[in-house]
Design a protein around this nucleic acid. Structure first.
Length: 659
RNA sequence: GCCGCCUUAGCUCAAUUGGCAGAGCAGCCGCCUUGUAAGCGGCAGGUUGCCGGUUCGAUUCCGGCAGGCGGCUCCA
């Protein structure tokens, strides 16, 4: 008697009784967490309608994984309120690799609290509580959630504003219809509930034991420092215990590569307290890497038509008023030093000074593109909490260039710069990129200077070049500098993390503010456009990225020590030194381990220092006028004739090879 | 800048309820040493980040500052 409806299941039509739910179709497969009905994610309990297109969704795809993590966040919130009924709920969305949930609690969570909460969560999960969707009117929701001030605030914002409210707020209050998800125990009683758009997994049981609370930290409510600070608990959840373990292993690998740790172990650089936060010193070994990078990058710039210039570290502040930086970036410049009736500022950017070089005499169209380049040391007053190793400093060197071009030349110059940057990264062993195009935010016009037309033209020029590059392009609305749009190159490292490297910016503002001009072929005076570009962004930062990318085991050309000689016994010191001396004469960086340590200890020391070539000599080698190599992976190459050994090392340096 | 946690020898870490601060590695000295990640012995190393408070007594408890870590906000 029951009427039938037709639904389309994962591409094939099927007739099913009315009131059939997605769970009826897929419920037997426990891997199915939710359903996608006509393109929208729905609970498995969702009742299907005639003509619906239904697909099963598992944690194998991102949508399913997000739902799993979102549901785990709910279990966390339930556990928190079970332990502390006074805790007020913020939001709890899935994020990359996990989830978080924000709480307003009297006392912040400590690591023991997290352990205890994990236990409560595991109990809830093992109980197999089920998630039930309940539609509710705004008024009823406000009454039911009277004790949850943050949820009430979200209800007030529901609709278009909610997504702007905070990352993830849309997860709580999505569309027009509010819903509450109740967690029901086996006996049908309500254990807990939360305002939530859903969908959720059918039962807490599917979370299993593949979750972990990672850390707690403060976060501003709705992402604004004007709002109260909530306590955020970060967690992670995966489809299986093995996947969780793989994730934790990845984190451990990232920690192992941490440039701050390796920088100290390999004696590359340090951050002396006496200097102040965010101000590094490079030790001799780090200095070698830094200089190799600089030498190479300087040479490449010159080959690409740039001219190397030099400018001072401080200037009277009028310059930065002319450039427009001071009104916009005074907060991130160090305070002025007053003397001789002027205020001097440490420079936070090099472009104004390059503009002065441009202006130092009349310029002809024949000189354009005019490309000025330097390693410009800039100082920025970064807030104390954001300083981070070599990646966020208060003083650093930019490999900064400014190309002065005619408007017509702009596109070609940007293309030239983009190709140049990508080539440089490849030379340093990074070859996986995408682009990000940062544009003006039209709703915040006071953050930007220049006319609509200028912005439109600049943005179109950049975008055209990006698209032509064929690289993946990610939009970043509102991310532009005040003076113009920019494209940045993001590089993926050896373990898949991305780092922002180069920026290329189209600037029509500063030429105007500085009154830059050139004389055109027809005798008229015209205004050039300037293209800012930093290839590595900052030398220090790029060095930090390389340390992590290579886990401290640099390619030979960048290695501080390229060959370390280890004699099998003291008697072979002279023989080995004779070989090393020949290498040294060819510019190879060599060391001889003449210490009193025994042979195996010397091997160990060289391995810990991650030296690419360990050169060994004993009686067998000497008898054959040869040497032996030991590589970083422990492999060996014995009895190599001396001339071959030298050629081998030279070839590895020349080809920028990793060994 | 905001929130939380942390700071003991050059490094990694100990120190029972507040009662004389200890180990490994590194360093220095000596002995030993012919084949691929730690040979043996000895010596030295500290105003427990800094300043103040409580106490008979503070590495330990409290406050301030500095630096670090994790987030938030920010990132020309």
């Amino acid at each position: 008697m029951s009427a039938q409806i037709t639904v389309n299941i994962a591409g094939s039509e099927r007739s099913v009784p009315e009131q059939t739910t997605a769970a009826d179709l897929f419920g037997d497969d426990r891997a199915v967490l939710v359903a996608r009905v006509n393109g929208e994610l729905r609970d498995l309990a969702h009742v299907l309608a005639d003509g619906d297109n239904v697909e099963p969704v598992t944690a194998a795809e991102q949508d399913g994984l997000d739902v799993l993590r979102h549901s785990t966040a709910h279990v966390l919130a339930q556990a928190v309120q079970e332990v502390n009924p006074q805790a007020k709920l913020g939001i709890g969305p899935p994020i990359r690799d996990g989830f978080y949930y924000d709480f307003d609690v009297e006392t912040p969570f400590n690591p023991e609290d997290l352990k205890a909460l994990e236990k409560v969560m595991q109990r809830i999960i093992n109980e197999g509580q089920t998630f039930h969707r309940r539609e509710i009117s705004d008024a009823d929701a406000l009454a039911e959630l009277a004790d949850e001030p943050y949820k009430c605030e979200l209800i007030g914002l529901k609709g278009g504003a909610a997504d702007d409210a905070a990352e993830g707020a849309g997860v709580e209050v999505g569309g027009a219809q509010l819903t509450i998800y109740d967690n029901l125990k086996k006996d049908g009683t309500r254990a807990w509930g939360d305002l939530c758009r859903g969908p959720h997994v059918p039962s807490t049981r599917v979370i299993g034991n593949a979750f972990k609370l990672m850390r707690s930290a403060a976060a501003y409510w709705r992402g604004s420092e004007k709002n109260p600070s909530l306590q955020r608990v970060y967690g992670t959840a995966w489809p299986s215990k093995d996947a969780l373990k793989a994730y934790l292993d990845r984190l451990a690998e990232a920690e192992r590569r941490d440039h701050r740790k390796l920088g100290a172990e390999l004696d590359l650089f340090s951050f002396p307290d006496e200097l102040g936060s965010g101000l590094p010193v490079f030790h001799p070994k780090g200095g070698i890497i830094k200089r190799e990078m600089e030498d190479y990058v300087r040479r490449r710039h010159i080959e690409e038509g740039f001219e190397y210039v030099g400018t001072p570290h401080i200037s009277k502040d009028g310059l930065f008023h002319t450039s427009g930086h001071l009104p916009y970036y005074a907060d991130t410049m160090f305070p002025p030093m007053e003397f001789e009736g002027s205020n001097y500022r440490l420079k936070a950017m090099n472009c104004p000074m390059h503009n002065l070089i441009y202006k130092s005499r009349g310029r002809s169209y024949r000189e354009l593109p005019l490309r000025l380049f330097e390693f410009g040391h800039v100082y920025r007053y970064e807030k104390s909490g954001v300083i981070h190793g070599l990646t966020r400093l208060r003083g650093f060197a930019q490999d900064d260039s400014h190309s002065y071009v005619t408007k017509e030349q702009a596109a070609a110059e940007i293309k030239h710069l983009l190709g140049f940057c990508l080539g440089l990264f490849r030379d340093f062993g990074l070859d996986d990129f995408y682009l990000e195009l940062s544009t003006r935010d039209d709703s915040k016009k006071d953050k930007f200077i220049g006319s609509e037309e200028q912005w439109a033209e600049a943005t179109a020029t950049l975008e055209q070049v990006c698209v032509e590059s064929g690289l993946e392009l990610v939009p970043d609305p509102g991310g532009a500098a005040y003076y113009g749009p920019k494209v940045s190159i993001q590089a993926r490292d050896a373990i898949g993390r991305t780092w922002q490297m180069s920026t290329i910016q189209y600037d029509f503002n500063q030429p105007e503010r500085f009154g830059l001009e050139y004389q055109a072929a027809d005798g008229t005076r015209q205004q050039p456009v300037m293209i800012h570009s930093a290839k590595f962004g900052s030398i220090e930062r790029f060095l930090g990225v390389l340390v992590e990318h290579y886990a401290g085991a640099f390619p030979v050309w960048l290695s501080p020590v390229q060959v370390v000689g280890i004699p099998v016994a003291e008697d072979f010191n002279d023989y080995l030194w004779d070989v090393l001396k020949q290498m040294k004469e060819q510019g190879i960086r060599v060391e001889l381990d003449e210490s009193d340590d025994r042979f195996p200890k010397k091997i160990r020391n060289a391995a810990k220092a991650k030296v690419p070539f360990v050169l060994i000599a004993g009686a067998e080698d000497q008898a054959k006028n040869a040497v032996s190599f030991r590589y970083r992976d422990g492999s060996q190459e014995n009895g190599v004739p001396i001339a071959d050994a030298i050629a081998k090392v030279l070839a590895a340096i020349e080809s920028k090879a990793q060994v």
